[in-house]
Design a protein around this nucleic acid. Structure first.
Length: 185
DNA sequence: AACCCGGCCAACCGCCGACAA
DNA sequence: TTTGTCGGCGGTTGGCCGGGT
């Protein structure tokens, strides 16, 4: 299918915007503005309002969410407990990085996504092979530290079950999910 | 020293859903 | 009801860097 037919207009004029790495000045302008006006501001008009940042609104939002937010105070390395939690949540939610990141204070969806793609995915696959489908629902990496999950007799016995039941099966995760989990193979 | 390769990070791209007109 | 705009999100890609040869 010719993709150009369904291509939408770009969110901004490329010729009028910077691309690539953000400079300190740009970061300063952006964080100053958001801290003064809050995140509820209109991202699209923010570049002008913040002092003629030559960036599109999407880039501004991404930069703020992933790097400039003051609550991002986590170290770069993921701890083992965080790894386990990500694996658990990924088994439940699939590639819903924003939801997963929401359960990891101080982490961003991008950090979680990169970490998964770089390290956890291969780790889970590797360990999953050893497990030979006996616990196909979740990998051994998960079961290592998720005794409470295994104890739960109702953990996703039926993929079509209401999503509301998931949280009750994972009390240690304090999940408050309202979406259906992906089909587990 | 030069080159290659893989890991990692950060930015961009494009789709989707919500919402207002 | 339709259409356009916007923010949010997940996937992809390009560049940097360190280790190995």
């Amino acid at each position: 299918m010719p993709r150009s037919i369904t291509m939408r207009k770009p969110c901004c004029q490329k010729k009028d915007t910077n691309t690539g790495a953000w400079s300190e000045l740009e970061d300063q302008k952006l964080s100053d503005y958001v801290l003064r006006h809050g995140e509820g501001c209109c991202w699209r008009s923010l570049p002008q309002a913040a002092g003629w940042l030559l960036r599109c609104g999407k880039s501004c939002r991404l930069r703020w969410v992933n790097y400039l937010r003051p609550d991002l105070n986590k170290p770069a390395n993921f701890g083992e407990d965080e790894d386990d939690l990500i694996i658990k949540l990924h088994a439940l939610l699939g590639n819903r990085w924003s939801l997963i990141a929401g359960r990891l204070p101080g982490r961003t969806e991008k950090e979680v996504k990169n970490h998964w793609n770089m390290q956890l995915k291969s780790k889970v696959l590797l360990m999953g092979r050893h497990n030979n489908n006996r616990r196909s629902l979740l990998s051994p990496a998960i079961t290592k530290t998720s005794s409470s999950m295994q104890e739960c007799q109702h953990f996703n016995p039926n993929p079509a079950a209401p999503a509301e039941t998931i949280g009750t099966c994972l009390p240690d995760l304090n999940l408050d999910l309202t979406i259906s989990p992906p089909l587990m193979l």
